[in-house]
Design a protein around this nucleic acid. Structure first.
Lengths: 124, 124
DNA sequence: AGAGACTACATGCATCTGCATCTAATGCAA
DNA sequence: TTGCATTAGATGCAGATGCATGTAGTCTCT
């Protein structure tokens, strides 16, 4: 793969990323009061059968720093979409659990999210 | 393309974007005192034979808002890497021109930039 | 020419992010 | 047990970004 192709691939990623992120922000923000990071976190939890996640695990999943994830969880908790539970085995740890309302909000936003993704990645 | 594949494509873009951006920030920031947006702007100008660009043109190229681009240009100008020139034909417009120092800085950083991209998009 | 709509760029402001740091809890060694 | 290094997560802070708006220049219609 030559230099030119590599740069083209990077620009393609940048373009798709910008376009998708912008569209998701509008759709999820306006209609469901969810930021993209917030939705991604809920999505990971739901995708993994709603198991408990540590903060750092989620940070790795959604490519955010530990501090950023901590604040995302704080926002979600404030909105009643997740709860923070102390880990019994290691009391430094925090388990993030989705609530029924969190599941409901995620389910409501899911079609819009998938629609945006399809528009970019699977153009009819 | 089914839903699952679309989501996988999105996650792939997110992963590549995060990994590349993070690596570029370190390489370009630490060694050449350039932000990723700053480098991308210089790169577009150099790639187009150093022609003059309007602020909005550059914003479209690098997927930033007009206001963000305005500030990127302000930072570049402060660093002496570009100059802002009034457009003769339309005195509302601003032409962004790269300086010799801008060209030099871009040329210096280019190998590191391409190396990061190759590491992600053309793994040996 | 003059008024009003429009366009290009700059700027105030709120938000999100990462880094550095802080606190609390754990683990290991003496 | 005590002391010190390490780890998990929270928080102060500075920087970048987008939206809304401000300012200046242009265009159109009369």
């Amino acid at each position: 793969m030559n230099d030119e192709a590599v740069v083209a691939a990077w620009h393609d990623v940048l373009a798709k990323h910008a376009k998708t992120l912008c569209a998701l922000e509008r759709e999820l923000g306006d209609k469901y009061d969810l930021g993209v990071s917030e939705f991604e976190v809920l999505d990971r939890i739901v995708s993994n059968e709603c198991r408990k996640f540590r903060v750092q695990e989620l940070a790795d999943e959604v490519h955010l720093s530990q501090s950023a994830l901590s604040r995302v969880v704080a926002r979600l908790e404030k909105g009643g979409l997740v709860t923070r539970g102390v880990c019994d085995m290691d009391r430094r740890g925090v388990f993030v659990c989705i609530t029924d309302e969190g599941r409901a909000r995620h389910a409501a936003a899911l079609p819009a999210h998938r629609a945006v993704l399809s528009a970019v990645f699977a153009p009819a």
